[in-house]
Design a protein around this nucleic acid. Structure first.
Lengths: 149, 149
DNA sequence: CGATTCGTAACTAACTAAGTTACATGAAAC
DNA sequence: GTTTCATGTAACTTAGTTAGTTACGAATCG
């Protein structure tokens, strides 16, 4: 799992969970999908459990399942549950009292607030169901072309 | 200079340059404003020179100046010249051939494209002149309140 | 009870970016 | 023309972040 790929890795995992709604997938299995370690998976998606996006159960037959239907899970929620920041730049004061810095931060924070609102709004319209639909489209296409050959 | 504060640090520097249009500021001076090293400054704003946002000159009386009027320098250009990525998440394939991953990346890349267009559009409407105006507003306020006391 | 699976803490390794040193290049002052 | 000042840049060091790993306790099922 590469740096900065927590969102896409998590989505990858969630699509697999959406495709196997009848059973719980173990961290081990999920880790296999994104080529990483089970502990990394548990750590990464721990926040999703608190957000109700997934549920986990222990012991025999335990593992992870979606907490609700894929069409009711938006990318905005997932991103927020991961604790991801949509905009990377920092605006923390380094010279408190400097008026130039204050002006810069004020303008930048205004922009950030508006930008985050915009991005979250757009992400809230994309659901896990959209991803599974896209996956199925690709899957069927491969199936057809294999048939043709 | 903290991590991820290259944009705000650079803006800080540029406002100082805008406030001293009659002379060149040295890397040493600029570094002082953001509490860092002259070499870090030179390295950071090297891209701005190539973009024509600033000019640099060597030797006696040399240093840095704005390449054009502050109202013709937008934050979009500055951010681009810094090589900053507005959206942090990665979408590089880690399992080429995996249809789930392909679906995830396709959706995420669509979103990114649209989001970057949106953010750049907004940043292009904020100029360095807006920042200096904000600074002057704060400066005048302090002046007045000092007077009052 | 024994096997399985999550939860989490603690540690290690890899990577990134800032900070630093050093020195060559160029320009102005004298 | 030599001295001084400033940028340009490469190379190295240091600090901070995050993924990866190990270890073990807690919960659950057969």
């Amino acid at each position: 799992m590469k740096r900065n790929s927590r969102l896409s890795s998590t989505l990858h995992i969630l699509v697999h969970m959406a495709e196997a709604p009848d059973r719980a997938l173990t961290s081990e299995e999920l880790a296999g999908f994104i080529h990483t370690n089970p502990v990394v998976v548990r750590r990464t998606i721990a926040g999703l459990r608190e957000a109700g996006i997934v549920t986990s159960s222990r012991g025999h037959g335990g593992g992870w399942q979606l907490g609700r239907a894929p069409d009711r899970i938006s990318l905005a929620e997932i991103s927020a549950a991961l604790g991801e920041t949509l905009l990377p730049f920092s605006t923390e004061p380094e010279s408190p009292g400097c008026l130039v810095e204050q002006a810069v931060i004020a303008v930048l924070d205004d922009f950030r607030l508006e930008a985050e609102r915009l991005l979250a709004e757009r992400l809230s319209h994309i659901t896990l169901a959209d991803l599974t639909a896209d996956f199925r489209r690709r899957y069927d296409l491969i199936g057809v072309s294999s048939h043709a050959v």
